[in-house]
């Protein structure tokens, strides 16, 4: 294992040990702050309960990623191809991120209902911004000499996009996608908090009302694992796709 990995594991181990020790020494009750060992036990033992809810949240997140990609990629290309479009759209993009997701969530639930659609859209809204901005910056960062070369070869915009701009921007795209998938669960969970019948966010609200703080933490642990898995998967894809680095 790499040295950085060992250090990270040590940091996590000591933080959990300090947490466990503090709770036990001060006899903090489980409905205030459960010990990590209890949370882990609930996360494993209650897998039968957590898994169906996690599956719902997972579907919401994956659908959100798909929709955000369907919007972000063409939008970045359009803004890159037409700077006037960028000038017109950019203020709305920034404004969309300045509005707290919590403020929009109730509206989306009213418009799209208590089903999966409102949560998917919430996740998509959060993910699409880092992908769009990073991809656009990636296109723009292409060296002038390469652009001149393609111009002299007589390449049109779409040929240049396919052969030069897109591969050039791929590292930026994956950087944006990594940020996006890391925060994707936030949108889905907030949507579930506002109004849902399934999902880890819904389970957290239910558990919280019954002072099952250990189950709330277990749901958080599953959400973290979900985010981390997505992040690792995108990293794997990145290494496969950008094989020349």
């Amino acid at each position: 294992m790499k040295r950085s990995g060992v250090i990270a594991l040590l940091v996590v181990f000591f933080a959990l040990a300090a947490w466990e020790t503090t709770c036990r020494v001060w006899s903090i009750p489980d409905f205030i702050l459960p010990v990590p060992s209890r949370i882990l036990a609930v996360a494993v033992m209650q897998a039968g309960l957590l898994l169906p809810h996690a599956a719902v949240t997972g579907v919401e997140v994956l659908a959100g990623i798909f929709i955000s990609l369907m919007v972000a990629v063409p939008l970045s290309i359009a803004m890159f191809a037409h700077p006037a479009a960028e000038n017109a759209i950019a203020p709305f993009l920034v404004a969309s991120q300045a509005v707290p997701v919590f403020a929009v969530a109730p509206l989306l639930v009213i418009w799209l209902g208590y089903g999966i659609a409102s949560k998917v859209l919430m996740a998509a809204v959060i993910i699409f911004f880092p992908i769009t901005v990073n991809l656009l910056e990636g296109f723009k960062s292409c060296d002038q000499e390469f652009r001149v070369l393609f111009r002299l070869m007589g390449a049109d915009f779409w040929q240049t996009l396919r052969l030069l701009y897109w591969p050039w921007a791929l590292p930026h795209f994956f950087a944006g996608l990594k940020v996006g998938v890391s925060v994707a669960t936030i949108g889905a969970v907030i949507g579930e908090w506002v109004g849902a019948q399934q999902g880890l966010g819904y389970l957290m609200i239910q558990a919280n009302a019954r002072l099952r703080v250990d189950l709330v933490f277990a749901a958080i642990l599953w959400l973290s694992a979900m985010g981390l898995s997505l992040w690792v998967f995108v990293g794997y894809l990145e290494r496969k796709v950008i094989s020349w680095r």
Partner: peptide, 17 residues
């Protein structure tokens, strides 16, 4: 000259992918 000439730069400008 537009596309009437070929061009070679001091950088090789080979695409790494």
């Amino acid at each position: 000259l537009g596309t009437a000439s070929a061009y070679m730069h001091q950088k090789d400008l080979l695409l790494p992918w």
